[in-house]
C-alpha cells in the first residue's frame, strides 16, 4: 500500500513526482555529500536525510525552478551540521582511479597509485568546506561553471578564480608527489 503525505499534505501524484526527483538526483546528492564528508556512511545518511527534509518541505518547492538547486541548500546545511557535530570526522577512502586507468599488475605501480590516492585524499581533507565543495562539484562531478555558480550562489568569474586557487593549493600540498 502506498502512503500519501499525511505530514505534508502531499497528494499521491506529488509523492510520485517526489520519487522521480529522488531517483534522478540521488547519485549527485550522495557524491556531493561524499566530497564534503569523505565517508560513505555519513554521505549516505546525509543525502537520505536531506531528501526526507525536502519531502517535508516539498510544498514550498517552486516547480518552475530546478529541483537540485533547491535541494542542494538543504543537503549542504545538513553536511555542515554533521561536520560541526563530528569534529573528529574520520575520512575513509573515498577516491578511486577512473576506469581508463587500468589496475596495474605491477606491485610497485600499485603502491604508487595507492600513495597518490592517499596523498590526494589527505590534501582534499585539509581544504576548507567551500574549497572541498567547489573541487568536488567541478572536478569529480563535472558540473558546469554556470551550475556551480547557481548552487554556490556566486558569479561565474568567482567560480573560476576559486577553482584556480584551490587547484593551486592542492598542487602545493602534493608537491613532489605529482
Amino acid at each position: 500500500m502506498k502512503v500519501v503525505g499525511l505530514e505534508t499534505g502531499l497528494s499521491p501524484k506529488q509523492l510520485k513526482e517526489f520519487e522521480i526527483h529522488v531517483k534522478a538526483n540521488m547519485k549527485r546528492a550522495y557524491f556531493t555529500a561524499l566530497g564534503l564528508l569523505g565517508s560513505h556512511d555519513l554521505a549516505m545518511d546525509a543525502s537520505q536525510e536531506a531528501f526526507l527534509r525536502a519531502y517535508k518541505n516539498f510544498n514550498k518547492f517552486d516547480p518552475s525552478k530546478k529541483f537540485f538547486t533547491w535541494f542542494y541548500k538543504i543537503l549542504k546545511n545538513l553536511c555542515l551540521n554533521l561536520i560541526r557535530d563530528n569534529k573528529n570526522l574520520k575520512e575513509e577512502r573515498f577516491l578511486e582511479f577512473t576506469c581508463e586507468q587500468p589496475a596495474s599488475e605491477d606491485i610497485q605501480n600499485k603502491i604508487e597509485q595507492d600513495e597518490l590516492i592517499n596523498s590526494l585524499q589527505q590534501a582534499i581533507a585539509e581544504l576548507t568546506i567551500e574549497e572541498k565543495e567547489i573541487i568536488t562539484l567541478r572536478e569529480f562531478e563535472n558540473y558546469s561553471y554556470k551550475e556551480i555558480s547557481e548552487l554556490m550562489n556566486i558569479p561565474i568569474g568567482t567560480v573560476m578564480s576559486k577553482l584556480f586557487y584551490v587547484r593551486k593549493k592542492l598542487t602545493q600540498k602534493l608537491a613532489g608527489k605529482i
Partner: peptide, 14 residues
C-alpha cells in the same frame, strides 16, 4: 594547473 588537472582527471569518487 594542467598537472593537477591531469591527476584529478584520473580519479573519481567511489
Amino acid at each position: 594547473q594542467k598537472r593537477i588537472k591531469e591527476v584529478l582527471k584520473k580519479m573519481k569518487l567511489k
